[in-house]
């Protein structure tokens, strides 16, 4: 009898502990990125502005986006990237922009990214930008911290 009581209480306790409490709806949906320009395998001209066109959208609120351009060399384990046999220094760009507060959708179109003719090399002197295949990445985050990315290859 006493055992049965203990059992019944224990079973109830199991149900209570395992049952759900009040749960908030949280934003776990990353933003969407539709990259219009440049397109995969497009050529970018050295010394000129990049025509950048991209649509961002999120179910709650967009926060920031970032463009990450770097030479496709760092991640290869043989000399597979085409360097067109030229001398030069790889160019890298890491630039981020914040969206205006409260935006759910945004169409971005600008020419703020400029491919330079030359960059500062290791010895502190200007060197021409190395031609070849570059990674062009676009990152986007929402206010909750969810993020998404798109990567394409571009030729300089």
């Amino acid at each position: 009898m006493k055992n049965s009581k203990i059992l019944a209480i224990s079973l109830m306790a199991i149900l209570v502990v395992g049952s759900s409490c009040k749960k908030d709806d949280v934003d776990n949906t990353p933003p969407a990125i539709v990259l219009g320009e440049p397109a995969n395998e497009d050529s970018l001209t050295i010394g000129e502005e990049v025509h950048f066109e991209c649509d961002f959208s999120d179910d709650v609120e967009l926060k920031s986006y970032k463009v990450d351009i770097h030479f496709n060399d760092g991640h290869t384990h043989n000399k597979s990237a085409e360097t067109f046999g030229e001398e030069g220094h790889p160019w890298t760009l890491e630039q981020s922009w914040d969206f205006e507060a409260g935006l759910k959708n945004s169409h971005i179109h600008h020419h703020e990214i400029v491919v330079p003719d030359s960059v500062v090399g290791e010895l502190g002197v200007l060197e021409p930008v190395l031609r070849g295949e570059y990674h062009f990445g676009v990152y986007c985050t929402d206010v909750a911290g969810n993020e998404s990315h798109v990567y394409i290859d571009v030729i300089l």
Partner: peptide, 18 residues
């Protein structure tokens, strides 16, 4: 580890800061 969505850092291949 909490994601913040901050993208303004210079490190390649990485997204938002955690």
């Amino acid at each position: 580890l909490q994601p913040t969505g901050e993208l303004n850092h210079p490190i390649p291949d990485a997204g938002g800061m955690y």
